[in-house]
Amino acid sequence: MPQDAAGTVGARMNPQVDSLIRAAQRGDQDAFEQLVRVYDQSVLRLAMNLLRSPEDARDVYQEAFLRVYRNLQTFRFDCSFHTWLYRIVTNICLDQLRKRKVRKEEAAVVETSEGPVDRMDLFEEEHAAADPERVTWNRQLGNRIESALGGLTPRERMVFELRHYQGLRLRAIGDILGTTEEAAKNCLFRATQKMRGVLGDFV
């Protein structure tokens, strides 16, 4: 059996997915809902980690799956559904990242008395009564990581996110982003170089 390009998510390894797609294409809403549930957590995770904002992640989720709903008829099984879905999702996320670059706006960062902080860190700290020294160090590292990631181009950021956090192979990432494995490789290399440059002695 040919390995699904996406590898880890295993769209082709789940024999139910194809029949869910076909049923949804026939207008079966329950099948569509089940299909969404197969993929939606990883889509939301990608959007949350890329955009660092639950509201933006929510918007990405909604727009992506509505596009899937509206365009499911055009899906012809000539690539894996995972690849098709991720083309939609990555396009929407890239769009958001580009807009942020243009606006020079760090939606994910909030000002506090201790300087700018990733709002997701605040979100996590509410749940953890961690020791203050550790919190401070983590916050500094967190800020440094955010600025390292902020220095990447939207495309480098996307390749890095898909490889590091989503565990997709570079070949699959190339398919999703409409480029070659080699170009994805170069992007990943540039991304790690830039981050190491910014993080310096922190890691």
Binding site: R45, M48, N49, R52, A57, D118, M120, L141, I145
Partner: peptide, 8 residues
Amino acid sequence: LDRRELQP
């Protein structure tokens, strides 16, 4: 980087 990963 792993430590900053978020789970929805």
